[in-house]
Each structure stands twice: as structure tokens, then as C-alpha cells.
């Protein structure tokens, strides 16, 4: 490129200009990956994109001849102070039918705060068949100082629950979210 005694064939400014164009091309390539990804996904029939199918309402028929026990549990990890308990310890449910349960939480921290409940379903094979249609765990829950209230969860245990499962445990851990509390003020 650079023979002795001769100036370089390309000036620094022009070489730098070409390299900036190269970088601009890379920036454009990043965006070009979006349509490229669409094409590859449709060729291989993979990806999570909306394909234009319409949602279809499904009517669930309760399975009257089967009873499953759903137990409710709560726990409070050590980063906040709460009273937190289910109003009933367990329900007998028919798969395919919508039920509602209440949990009571009270803020014992002595100041306004925000709680976030994190759900867990055991055994793990049952988790995908336990459908929550409404839950206080979907959103952060603001509490004023000393405030206590009941919060609902509505759920369906679906009919595909494996036959050998007759007991499902729904447990919640309640975390304090001071960072979110700060945002909300």
C-alpha cells in the first residue's frame, strides 16, 4: 500500500470518509435485518409474529365428574413487612370452570409502599394448565401506610390437566418494590 518515498495513494481524509460510509452501511444493515428476518421466518415457518389469524372464543365445559384440590399459600421474603394470607386455605374445583379466591395483604412497613406478588404453581407439570384470567400479581399493588385489603385472583384449571394430578398448589411471594414506589409518587 505504502511504498517508500511515495505519498499514500488515498489521503487520510478520503480513507476515513470511506470507512464512515462503511459504518453507515452497517447501521442500515441493522435495519435491513428486520425485513430479512420476516422473510426467513416465513420460509422456515418459525418466529412469534402475528400471522393474521383471528382469536376464537372457546367455551369451556366444566368437567363435573372430576375434582381437583387447589391449595393457596403465601410467603413474605425478608425485604418488606407484610401481613399476607389467603382467605381460604384450599378449594375443591372442577376443571374447566372459572373460580375466584381472595388474598388479604396489609402493609406493616410503617410507610407508603408498593408490593409485587410473584406467583408459583406446583407441581410444575400443572403450571401450564393453571390459567389465571385476573390476578393481583399482574400489576404492582400500591399500599398506603397501614392499609390492608383483599385482592382477587380468578382462575380456571383446564381440562388437559394430567389425570394423575389431583392437587395443585398456588403460592405467592410478596416483595416490596421501593423503586416502583418512588416512581409513583
Amino acid at each position: 500500500m505504502n511504498t517508500p518515498g511515495e505519498p499514500p495513494k488515498v489521503t487520510n481524509r478520503s480513507l476515513a470518509g470511506r470507512l464512515f460510509l462503511f459504518a453507515a452501511g452497517s447501521f442500515a444493515f441493522g435495519f435491513a435485518l428486520v425485513p430479512l428476518y420476516d422473510v426467513l421466518c416465513s420460509v422456515w415457518e418459525v418466529g412469534n409474529r402475528w400471522t393474521g389469524e383471528k382469536a376464537v372464543a372457546v367455551v369451556e365445559h366444566p368437567q363435573a365428574d372430576r375434582l381437583v384440590t387447589v391449595e393457596f399459600m403465601t410467603s413474605v421474603p425478608n425485604n418488606g413487612r407484610w401481613e399476607f394470607r389467603p382467605l381460604v386455605a384450599a378449594l375443591q374445583v372442577h376443571p374447566g370452570q372459572l373460580y375466584s379466591a381472595q388474598f388479604h395483604a396489609q402493609n406493616l412497613s410503617g410507610h407508603d409502599t408498593v408490593g409485587q406478588a410473584v406467583p408459583s404453581v406446583a407441581p410444575s407439570v400443572a403450571a401450564q394448565h393453571f390459567r389465571k384470567t385476573e390476578c393481583f400479581c399482574f400489576t404492582p399493588q400500591p399500599f398506603r401506610k397501614d392499609e390492608g385489603r383483599d385482592m382477587p385472583v380468578r382462575f380456571i384449571v383446564d381440562r388437559d390437566l394430567p389425570a394423575d394430578v389431583d392437587r395443585v398448589t398456588l403460592s405467592y411471594a410478596m416483595f416490596e418494590q421501593p423503586a416502583l414506589a418512588a416512581v409513583r409518587q
Binding site: N2, T3, P4, G5, P8, V10, N12, L15, L19
Partner: peptide, 15 residues
Amino acid sequence: AINVIVTILNMRAPG
């Protein structure tokens, strides 16, 4: 990075 490339391609001593 552009600085490094231009330095190496254009600024090497003769030989």
C-alpha cells in the same frame, strides 16, 4: 476504530 485503520493503512513508515 476508523482512526486505527487509517493510521495502519496510510501512516506506516517506508518499508
